[in-house]
Design a protein around this nucleic acid. Structure first.
Lengths: 142, 142
DNA sequence: TCGAAACTTCGAAGTTGCAAGTATAACAGT
DNA sequence: ACTGTTATACTTGCAACTTCGAAGTTTCGA
């Protein structure tokens, strides 16, 4: 499957329209819950480096240590520390501490986080076809 | 197609593995470009309310005005103003100003932004199956 | 003069970055 | 035996940047 086929498949299967009609089939109580969850997720992912971190896990296929993440991405320790705590609190990462010297701590994505990974795969594929720039067609006046 | 089938289809078609092998088929120059674009996108989407705004466009299916976005989401005017300018500069939204009284400005997603919309659809579907909370299985020690 | 829309502007509050420090225990040198 | 170094996974303190909240600006027709 080449990239065009992949984008096409992705697009045809999970359109916003599908998502909307699926959401509308829920009770209003469930709809509220979904809205809340989406908002919370966006709040979490909307913080500095949050998506870079999850994306790293998505492509890593193995548990990662604090120092591995720190050196793979350009994040200072305090921010990384806070982000990891938030992910653990949200149930997206699990933290395992090994009582060795020097200490070793491993973070690994939970199934809940893994269910989000296709998003990161898709974003990479999107980036093969697109760029972000101060480009054409920005402003019009009528 | 029900929600389980949709999640399954999405997962099987755009796995991180697919994305990685596709990326590895590129020249190193192209790979760098992809990395840069992904980083820029994450920087953009990682700012306050950025994903809420794009998600609103994804589900709206029509151009949106400044005041519509402002009242649909809890964003103060100055932040919204900056976010919209950034999206226009990035080529994700186009801005059309109608010289009427009172003035009217419409923002509409470009094809480049529309190509990202499946992500927002998927996130909503994910949110039907998952919640974010201070839950179980956070911390272990060995 | 008022109203409506799409913004700015300003100062306070919150978040992130940068640099340095902490705890632990093994290990190397003198 | 004692001192100093190394390594990891963090904290801490402060400066710089971002976002919020509220108020102000512009335009022009009613």
């Amino acid at each position: 499957m080449d990239r065009a086929a992949m984008l096409e498949a992705f697009n045809s299967i999970v359109t916003v329209h599908d998502a909307r009609s699926l959401r509308e089939s829920l009770s209003s109580r469930e709809q509220e819950q979904v809205e809340t969850t989406v908002t919370e997720l966006f709040d979490l992912l909307g913080k500095a480096h949050a998506m870079e971190i999850l994306s790293l896990f998505a492509f890593a296929d193995k548990p990662l240590r604090f120092s591995e993440i720190e050196s793979a991405l350009e994040i200072v320790a305090n921010t990384l520390s806070v982000r990891l705590q938030e992910f653990v609190a949200a149930g997206l990462l699990s933290r395992t501490k090994y009582d060795e010297v020097p200490p070793r701590v491993e973070y690994r994505p939970t199934p809940k986080a893994e269910a989000l990974f296709p998003v990161f795969g898709y974003v990479h594929i999107w980036a093969i076809e697109h760029e972000l720039d101060a480009s054409k067609d920005g402003e019009n006046t009528h």
